[in-house]
Amino acid sequence: MENIEKPEIEIAQLRRLIEMIKKRYDYDFSNYAMSSFRRRVQRFIELFRIESMEELIRKLELDKQFFKTFLSEITVNVTEMFRDPTFWVELRDEIIPSILMNKKEFRVWHAGCSSGEEVFSMAILLDEMGILDQVEIVATDIDYSILDKAQQATYNLRNMEEVNKKNYQRFMGKRTLEAYYKVEDGKAVMDKTLLRNVQFVEHNLVNGEKIGVFDLILCRNVMIYFNQTLQNEVLKLFHASLPRYGYLAIGSKESLIWCEYANKFIIVNNNEKIYKKIRD
């Protein structure tokens, strides 16, 4: 997997790193899932040819810009348009029509939106339903630079053709995915008018402030990088950000059952992991 192997990172070293970051930059990684966090740190060390954990801690403490780079690399930004096509079918055919029964306009929060693939999926879905201008979307991420990337709306062409297009076909959209992008310099550039009702905001789910009330929250495959303590805290935030009967969607292999607030939700679709808030 890697050519130059560095000595194994110990938990005690990770704790020191996390402590320093918290003190110096006020980002708290202490409740991240340790196995993936360790691997991300290991990957970062190899990528930037850093000799030891001590050196990493020293460099991060001294150099704010370097810390920004670290933040971007440590968070996982691998995503797809229309990942799990059946999920998007369920949104289009069941969830959104049921929201529309009660209100003409509604709000969506993409929590941990990364490079924006899901935001585009949502915008395309709404556009094809003819309701894009009735919906206000807020897309947030911990990493400012990835929000910038999302707004540039420029994606790898190969991913577009091999992954996203296939997903879109299985979603059975009204058009073809190519209708939504142009190819420029070997890249796929999305139609930016799809983003006209989208607001991108820097926001950390750890100790995150409430940013409003939303009828639908999407947070798919974000909380898998958190431990159960943090998952529980984030669920409280989502609970506070939903009206009664508001919807929350998480990744297809995630679960809320071990969270303290789980009994305030019911599961609407277990395969797609779509929940509905039923109690305040």
């Binding site: 196995s35 993936s36 996982v76 691998v78 898998i224 297809s252 292999k253």
Partner: peptide
């Protein structure tokens, strides 16, 4: 599961990941 990495955490639990 399909399209996820399966990992083992300390404390005898699994975790999933969508990393590269």
């Amino acid at each position: 599961p399909a399209n996820y990495h399966l990992c083992v955490e300390l404390g005898q639990t699994f975790s999933l990941s969508t990393e590269e």
